[in-house]
């Protein structure tokens, strides 16, 4: 009986697939396109294009306010300004372990992190873990007005001093 009935229930199209197969492929295909589009759209939507975060360049104030042989901490911008024998340098106060804000301990002469107990020297060298790396030195420069500018987005690969 089947030849005639087959022609009715399974209308074949040239490549041998049934019409239902073709519609399923079109349906699943367009669903995949829509899902990838939604994923791209969603990723784009969730990434902010404008951030209202503080500028990475922090103004630490007049260069003259850092006395020789001193460590000055600016907790607001998360940096240290150290006036050493070689000159002035800037370091990030953000712990290289998990990003807590470290603090200068003048009575001990070291920098310590309150979160997990890492300790650093005043030149950022790691004295005690769990921090994996020394504190980052940051690019510092003097503006035309005589202010010390510290770029927190620019960690230095080697030590660099600002002469006064």
């Amino acid at each position: 009986m089947s030849e005639n009935e087959d022609a009715i229930t399974k209308e074949t199209i040239p490549d041998g697939n049934t019409r239902r197969d073709a519609f399923v492929k079109i349906g699943v295909g367009s669903l995949c396109v829509a899902c990838s589009g939604a994923a791209v759209f969603g990723y784009d939507f969730l990434s902010p294009n404008v951030l209202y975060e503080p500028s990475p360049v922090a103004n630490a104030g007049k260069i003259g306010k850092f006395p020789p042989d001193s460590v000055t901490q600016d907790a607001q911008s998360g940096i240290y300004i150290v006036h050493a024998a070689e000159g002035i340098y800037a370091m990030s106060a953000v712990c290289t372990h998990l990003g807590c804000l470290t603090a200068w301990k003048p009575e001990l002469g070291i920098i310590a992190c309150p979160c997990h107990g890492s300790k650093f020297g005043r030149d950022g060298v790691k004295l005690e873990g769990p921090a994996p790396r020394p504190l980052e030195w940051l690019k510092a420069s003097i503006s035309d007005e005589g202010d010390l500018l510290v770029d927190r987005s620019a960690p230095l690969s080697e030590k660099q001093f600002v002469r006064t």
């Binding site: 990723y43 969730l46 990434s47 902010p48 951030l51 209202y52 975060e53």
Partner: peptide, 11 residues
């Protein structure tokens, strides 16, 4: 994406 920025902030 989780923080909506580089630091823990309003976003």
């Amino acid at each position: 994406l989780m923080l909506g920025g580089n630091t823990v902030n309003a976003n």
